[in-house]
Design a protein around this nucleic acid. Structure first.
Length: 448
DNA sequence: TCTGGGGTCCTAGGACCC
DNA sequence: TCTGGGGTCCTAGGACCC
């Protein structure tokens, strides 16, 4: 956020970001996970398809055909089973190695259309198109859409406007309107008002279910209604976040393009178990495996953490016996070393373990993350440079072995010697497709 | 019976300081 | 008996996102 000399905090956060007119393009992959499956299984085209969350718990992606059958986002699989059988819906477990790789291909292709890009999520990116002629924007969007489809097989929709929030709304129209054909621009006031009048309050980026309910209760039903509210009222009821959304809808950019992702502030690894865990050793080994995985993530991001938090939970959908325990422990110095992080997690674990409970999920959080080169020195603790260098080299070798030969080829003993507690073993994945692009033994086979 | 995982920001209130 | 004013930092909880 740029600061244009306004000292008041509120003004500072709302100031217009640049004197030059911004243009944002939101590129959104259509039903991304389903589209990834379809690239390698073209016969799924035109069929209802859903993709499940980890542990085959909920439906987290749906093809248009599945949406037309009124399957809501997040529906638990057990509730959907009847409709799945009845309509012969194709079901897939989530296959993150495949989706991550396909995402990288899409993002690489998008990078050729603008030097200014923010990768917003696995299936979305904003492009900065400031300086482009308004008249040519929609065609540019169509060009992007066709190129991505041709290069990667993934269908995308493009929304173009002067703020991110409006670009999101343009993307919403691009995806749903036949006339838009996948690319829609909002660059003039009358188009904007026409469009906002048709957008439900819940479909505005930044307005979730709670605020939508509150606004609906106040008679604010459409994006246009919201757009016309008094700024003071919004500030009072929805804070600075809601006010930013309001101003963005009015064409005043409050959210900048984040070309370089800011450093992470927390890293979390957590899983729910396929079956409740009552055994101390099994839970302990799982937490150790999560900690090891988190340490690996920190190393990949060049970060160290000062505190390790461990949490364990019983079934959250059973409020009667619900228990959530959480405890933290700090390693002597900030670290991303697997052994040190795991050790800290094991100490914290002792404070959350409670016998006699049925644990349904557990996880670890790395807190106080800082870049590895900014570790704070300690007055009474002089690190041994030689030891440090050896530790670092050990972790480099550790990561190299696991990346070249396969995850968990080498691991720390507290995650379980019989390999049962490694990440994912307790997770159901009954419907996973092959890792077509990231695993030699699962490459697609082309028949002559 | 079966209900994901990983993040962010903002705000209010308490502890603590001088 | 009477007991200030102003600031920072931390944390928990609530909202949001995909």
């Amino acid at each position: 956020m740029q600061h244009l000399g306004c000292s008041h905090r509120f003004c500072a956060t709302l100031c217009i970001l640049s004197s030059m007119k911004q243009i944002f393009a939101l590129v959104d992959c259509n039903n991304f996970f389903v589209s990834c499956e379809r690239v390698f299984n073209p016969h799924l085209e035109g069929c209802p398809v859903v993709v499940l969350s980890n542990n085959d718990g909920c439906i987290i992606a749906r093809s248009n055909e599945a949406k037309a059958l009124s399957i809501p986002m997040g529906m638990p699989l057990f509730e959907a089973n009847k409709i799945i059988r009845h309509h012969n819906i194709h079901v897939y477990s989530s296959n993150y190695p495949l989706y991550g790789d396909m995402s990288a291909r899409v993002m690489n292709a998008l990078g050729t259309f603008s030097p200014h890009m923010e990768i917003y999520s696995i299936d979305e990116a904003f492009l900065g198109l400031a300086g482009f002629e308004h008249r040519g924007l929609r065609d540019y969007g169509l060009n992007i859409k066709n190129t991505i489809k041709q290069w990667t097989g993934i269908p995308v929709s493009i929304g173009i406007a002067e703020t991110k929030t409006l670009a999101k709304i343009a993307g919403h129209i691009a995806k749903r309107s036949d006339k838009a054909n996948g690319s829609f621009t909002i660059t003039d006031e009358s188009t904007k008002c026409n469009v906002l009048d048709k957008i439900k309050i819940r479909d505005i980026w930044g307005i979730g279910s709670r605020w939508a309910q509150m606004l609906n209760d106040q008679g604010v039903k459409t994006a246009l209604d919201f757009h016309n509210l008094h700024e003071r009222w919004v500030r009072k009821r929805m804070g600075i976040t809601g006010t930013r959304t309001l101003l963005e809808l009015r064409g005043q950019p409050c959210l900048n393009l984040e070309s370089h992702p800011p450093d992470k502030k927390t890293i979390r690894v957590s899983r729910s178990f396929a079956k409740p865990v009552t055994n101390r050793q099994v839970l302990r080994e799982s937490v150790a495996a999560f900690a090891a995985r988190a340490a690996e993530k920190m190393r990949r991001n060049g970060l160290v953490c000062s505190t390790v938090n461990v949490f364990v939970m019983t079934n959250q959908f059973n409020p009667k016996n619900y228990y959530r325990g959480s405890a933290s422990h700090s390693p002597p110095v900030p670290s991303n070393h697997t052994a040190e992080i795991t050790q800290a997690a094991m100490i914290a674990f002792e404070n959350v373990w409670t016998p006699g409970l049925q644990f349904k999920s557990a996880g670890v959080m790395m807190l106080g993350l800082v870049p590895v080169e900014r570790i704070q020195g300690q007055l009474f603790f002089q690190p041994n440079k030689l030891v440090n260098e050896r530790k670092k080299r050990l972790m480099v070798a550790f990561d190299k072995i696991n990346s070249n030969i396969g995850n968990n080829t080498i691991r720390i003993a507290s995650t379980g010697v019989d390999n049962r507690a490694k990440c994912g073993v307790y997770t159901l994945q009954n419907y996973r497709s092959p890792r077509y692009t990231t695993c030699w033994s699962e490459l697609p086979i082309v028949q002559a």
